[in-house]
Nucleic acid binder design. Structure first.
Lengths: 159, 159
DNA sequence: ATTTTTTAGGTCAATGATAATCAATCATGA
DNA sequence: TCATGATTGATTATCATTGACCTAAAAAAT
């Protein structure tokens, strides 16, 4: 299975990995030639896989000596991490976006897979609660607590 | 009737079981062809049997090279433990009781400190939501999701 | 100094290939 | 019989690829 975007992503990641620095510089045209594709394919890969949500920043320049610089955002201390996450989530977020963020955070080892699972459960609970508001009126706090607690614990319990 | 969903579930479970990894990747279309059913049948099986509450996470992509990845997070079925916890929690529970249960579970190393924190955040959120019902009317789902997600992540990062 | 040319990268819309959602219908078991 | 779970297919959303056209920066020409 040939998935060009995936290949290009992997190549860029390997470059980043091999670097001492937290960034790499590319020439769009050369990379496109290397993968025998149209130059705008590179933009697509960057737009879809090296976003701030995924922990990257892009800088570039046109004309002679043009380049594309891919910077991996590093959060040294907890405060930076929090700021970064706060920026990404913003005031509101969709379930799909949240799901992707958690995927990224697990990839980056900010959270474990079990923690991700717990958060997913809480998000589903929140969404459901929001969706069927009516239920709210009939269900007391204790019942809601019992339900979410069971869901979360059953989700993470291991043999 | 033969119960297609059950068959598909069993097939996916057997795939997971045969893997070294804790996940399998499928192509929805192929699986549907294999079971001679409509593709959305696969979604139904995943939605009803491979939820986070049951210890699974689903990742997927559309378009060319599309796939569905089923990740098994918890190692499943310690039936007695689940039954035990189910008995303890019961139909309803107070915040204080829940807190004590989590303390015990952490002591016994069923959950980590961070996981406990996550669960407590979700419980607080649930309690608050239940208490201030009014807010519900003014706050949309995205805002609720953003709030709980931030609380959970911030809680775990500074822990 | 200004204009023109060259050389880069950026944007966008079209297309084809999947997967997700939703509402309607059907089947089963209590 | 009724409630719940299962099945289906029409519609919608997302992803990857391509190429035509646009913009910016530096060099070359005037």
């Amino acid at each position: 299975m040939k998935n060009l975007s995936e290949d290009i992503e992997q190549y860029i990641l390997s470059l980043l990995d091999g670097e001492e620095e937290n960034f790499v510089s590319l020439r769009r045209k050369e990379l496109a030639q290397m993968f025998e594709c149209v130059p705008s394919q590179i933009n697509y890969v960057l737009r879809s896989r090296f976003t701030p949500e995924q922990g990257y920043l892009i800088e570039s320049r046109r004309g002679e000596y043009g380049y594309i610089k891919i910077v991996k955002i590093s959060c040294a201390n907890p405060e930076e991490k929090i700021q970064h996450i706060d920026d990404i989530i913003g005031r509101t977020i969709t379930f799909t976006e949240a799901h992707r963020l958690l995927e990224t955070l697990q990839d980056r080892e900010f959270i474990t897979k079990r923690e991700r699972l717990l958060i997913e459960i809480a998000l589903r609970q929140t969404e459901e609660t929001s969706r069927v508001r009516q239920r709210f009126i009939d269900e007391d706090t204790g019942e809601m607590l019992a339900k979410i607690l069971k869901r979360m614990l059953f989700g993470i319990i291991t043999a």
